[in-house]
């Protein structure tokens, strides 16, 4: 049987001005305009947002679990990237 399902979209909602868009969930829609309308009706029914992004799910690329050790673990010991790595005498004040 032919698949006639509308494509899947990912919905990102900015909860208030100044914040970034955050993933809210997914939905089906025939095109971007309807995806935005549907996102408004599905994901902002309780005033959860002031702006919506939608992107078709197939356009999202992600890292793989099997890569995660080499992708993320190496940064755990790079403590020199954090301010607490450096000794500054208290007399200098806040820096």
């Amino acid at each position: 049987m032919e698949r006639k399902d509308w494509p899947l979209w990912e919905v990102f909602v900015r909860s208030k001005a100044g914040l970034s868009h955050k993933h809210s969930g997914s939905l089906h829609a025939p095109d971007a305009e309807m995806a935005i309308s549907n996102a408004r009706d599905v994901y902002t029914r309780r005033s959860e947002g002031v702006s919506i992004w939608v992107v078709e799910s197939k356009h999202i690329h992600s890292t793989l679990e099997t890569d995660s050790e080499s992708m993320f673990d190496p940064n755990e010991d790079k403590i020199y990237r954090h301010p607490t790595f450096y000794d500054i005498p208290d007399e200098v004040g806040h820096m």
């Binding site: 698949r3 006639k4 399902d5 899947l8 969930g25 997914s26 939905l27 089906h28 599905v42 029914r45």
Partner: peptide
Amino acid sequence: IQDEAGHGLYLYSAAETLGTDRE
């Protein structure tokens, strides 16, 4: 009741992450 439709939708979406589609 509209919320229930929404909840069905969230759950179908969660199920779809396992490689099957809603239809």
